[in-house]
Design a protein around this nucleic acid. Structure first.
Lengths: 348, 348
DNA sequence: GGTAAATATGCAAACGTTTCCATAATTAAA
DNA sequence: TTTAATTATGGAAACGTTTGCATATTTACC
C-alpha cells in the first residue's frame, strides 16, 4: 500500500521548511505577542504557500476542548424548531463554535443515544429540547456531573441542574382562555399535547385557572390530550363535530391542530368566528394565510434560540458551575389576534 | 492552580486498573476478534464502573478521521431547506456520523469562511447548497483537491468535480408553463430568482422553451428577476397590478412570492383562477392552506436530502475519487395542481 | 561593565487513542 | 515430540498541536 503522506502539511512541516521550531510556528500562527513580526510574516507566508490547514482535532485533543456545541431537538423541520435552530446556529457560529445537531424524532431511545454520542465527541456545551416522552432526565447526568454547560429550551425538565429557557406557557394558556372568554365563549374545547411534557402542563394550568376565575365549567368531554399530529387532530375533530351540541370555541395548543379544526368546522357548516372561534399556538406562518386567519400565541422562537445560544456560550466562558437553583429564563409570549376569534376589536 | 486530573477516565486508566495493556483495552472495547471473551467482559465492566467515555477527538487524531460530515446551507428555517436538512441529518446519524451544520445567510463571505472552518475541523465529507451569489466555487477546492467527498444539492455548480444533486428544474419550469398554457393563459408574468443561480436558470429555460413551442411571446415587461424575498415580491406585485392590462397568469418560482401575488390579485379585485391563474414553486405547506389553494411544483425535499446524505456516505465508504465527469443526480419534480390554476380537471 | 527586565525562540512532554509488530500461550498437525 | 498455526496480549510509536519551562538575545538602567 502506498502510504499517502499527510494530507496537507503540518506545523512541523512548516517548522522544518523554515528551520525553526514547531512551537514558534504554532505561536506565530496565532499571533502570540512574544514572536517577532518578522517571524510571523515568514511563517504565515510559508503556511499559505504549503496550503497549511489547522487541525482542530489535534488542537482539541491537546487543549481538551472541541470548540463544538451540541444541539438536540425533536425534529428540525417543524416551523417552530427550525426557527430556533436557525437562531442558535447563527449565534453559535458567531461565537466561534461549531454546532453539531442531532434529532430525536421524539424517540426517547434515540435521545439517550445522541446524548452519549455528543458526550463522546466532547462538545463543550449542550443545548437540548427533549422528546415528548422524556420524564427521566438522568441520561443527561454525564453532562451535569462533569460540569459541562447544559441548556434546555422549550421542552425542559422541571427540576434539574441546568439552565432552562422556556416560553411563558402558563401565560399563553391564560391569555388564550381569557381572550376566548372575553369574546363570549362558554363551551371551549381544549386540545392539548400529552401532559408528560412541561409546556402542555403549564398551558393547561393557565387555561384551567382562567376558566375557574370566570366560573366556567370544564367538562371532560371538552378535553383532549394526545400527541398533536395531523392524524390525531383529524380523529379528534371528527369526534368533536360528529354530534351536537357543538362547542363555541376550540383552543388547540399547536397550529396544525387549529388549522385542522378550522377545516372541520367549516365542513360542518359553521361560521368562523360567528358560530365557533378557533385559537392556535405558535403563530406558524400558515396561521396568517388561512382564511379566516388564525388567532395564535406567538412564541418568538428566534428570541428563544438566541437566549439559549447566549446561555451556553456564557456558561462555557465563565465556567459557571450549574446549580439546581439556577432560575429559568422565561421568554415572552404574545397573543396575535386574527379573524378566527373575531379579529382586533375597536377599543381593545 | 489545582490540576484537575483528567475529566473522566481513559483507556490507560482502565488498563492500569486491570493491570493489562492499553492496546488490549482498546481492542476489547471494540470487540476485536483476537481478544478473549473473558477479557472483553472484564474490560467493559471496568469501563462502565469508571464511567469511561470514548474520546472522539483522540481517536479522530490517530485515525485521521473525525466521523463528522459538514453541511452548508443558506438558511435552515426556510421550509424547503429545513425539510432537506432534516432528511440529511437523519440519514447521516443513521450512518454513524455527526453532522455539523453551518448557515451562510446567503452571504458569499460567510460561505468562504465556513468552508474553511469545516475543512479545519476535518469533516470527512461536505454537503453544500450555495448562496444565491456563488458563481466562483474555488473556495471548495481545498476539498476537491484533497479528495474529500463533496456533494452539492439544489444550488449547485455547473461544472465542478463533485457529486451534484438537483431537482429537475428545467422540467419544473416547463411543466408549470405547459400547465398554464393548457388552461388558456397567454400573458404569463414570470417572477424568478437571480439568474446567477443554476436553478433559476434552468427553470427559466424550461419556461421559455415551453412558451416558444407554443409560439407565445415573452415580452420583457412580463419578466422579473430578483431575490425572492417578501419585500421584493410586494414591490414587484405593486408594479404588476398598478396598471392594466393585467396578466392572466403569474408563475412565481417560489411560494412566498406566489402567495403575495395571490393576495395582490385578490386586492385588485381579480378572481382566481377566473381572471388570473397563479402558480408557485416548492409546495410549501402554506400553498394548500391558502384560499384558493396554490398550484405549485413539488420538489420532494426529503428525497433530495436522502440522496445527498447517501451520496456522501457512499463516497466516504468507497473512497471514490471525484471526477469532473460525475453525472448529476436529478430528483423528480411534480406539478401539484390546485384551485389557483383551476384545479384538477375532469379527464386530465 | 553589570544586573535586570523585556523580547524571542527552542525543547520536550502531553492530550487519548489506535495499530504495527513482536511475543507468549495454546492448540492442531505432522 | 517437534513444528506450525492459531489465539491472545503487550510495547511503543504515531496522529498534530500546544505550552511550561528553559535559554538566548537584546535593550534599559544604574
Amino acid at each position: 500500500m502506498i502510504s499517502k503522506k499527510n494530507t496537507g502539511n503540518t506545523i512541523v512541516d512548516i517548522a522544518r521548511a523554515l528551520d525553526i521550531s514547531p512551537s514558534t510556528v504554532s505561536r506565530a500562527l496565532k499571533d502570540h505577542p512574544y514572536i517577532s513580526q518578522a517571524t510571523k510574516d515568514r511563517v504565515k507566508k510559508q503556511a499559505a504557500k504549503m496550503g497549511y490547514r489547522h487541525n482542530a482535532l489535534a488542537a482539541g485533543l491537546r487543549n481538551r476542548k472541541s470548540n463544538t456545541i451540541g444541539l438536540i431537538c425533536p425534529r428540525i423541520s417543524m416551523y417552530f424548531q427550525s426557527s430556533i435552530v436557525t437562531a442558535i446556529q447563527r449565534k453559535v457560529q458567531e461565537a466561534g463554535y461549531s454546532l453539531v445537531i442531532c434529532q430525536t424524532n421524539d424517540s426517547y431511545e434515540i435521545e439517550k443515544q445522541v446524548v452519549n454520542a455528543l458526550y463522546a465527541s466532547r462538545v463543550e456545551g449542550l443545548i437540548a429540547s427533549c422528546t415528548l416522552h422524556t420524564e427521566d432526565f438522568s441520561h443527561f447526568d454525564i453532562f451535569s456531573k462533569s460540569g459541562i454547560p447544559l441548556v434546555f429550551y422549550d421542552r425542559v425538565p422541571r427540576s434539574y441542574p441546568a439552565q432552562v429557557i422556556r416560553g411563558d406557557d402558563y401565560r399563553g394558556g391564560t391569555e388564550g382562555a381569557e381572550h376566548l372568554i372575553s369574546r363570549g365563549c362558554k363551551q371551549i374545547v381544549y386540545i392539548s399535547g400529552p401532559l408528560t411534557c412541561n409546556l402542555y402542563q403549564d398551558r393547561y394550568a393557565g387555561f384551567k385557572d382562567a376558566l375557574q376565575r370566570h366560573k366556567l365549567p370544564l367538562p371532560k368531554k371538552n378535553l383532549f390530550f394526545h400527541e398533536l399530529t395531523l392524524e390525531n387532530a383529524r380523529r379528534t375533530c371528527e369526534r368533536i363535530f360528529s354530534k351536537k351540541p357543538w362547542p363555541d370555541a376550540i383552543f388547540a395548543t399547536n397550529d396544525t391542530t387549529a388549522i385542522v379544526a378550522e377545516q372541520y368546522a367549516r365542513e360542518a357548516g359553521l361560521k368562523i368566528p360567528g358560530d365557533i372561534k378557533i385559537l392556535g399556538y405558535s403563530n406558524d406562518p400558515r396561521t396568517e394565510i388561512i382564511d379566516p386567519a388564525l388567532t395564535s400565541v406567538e412564541q418568538f422562537p428566534a428570541v428563544m434560540g438566541e437566549k439559549a445560544a447566549d446561555a451556553v456560550v456564557e456558561l462555557i466562558r465563565k465556567k459557571t458551575q450549574l446549580k439546581k437553583t439556577m432560575p429559568p429564563i422565561i421568554t415572552p409570549v404574545e397573543l396575535v389576534v386574527r379573524a378566527s376569534t373575531g379579529g382586533r376589536m375597536a377599543g381593545s
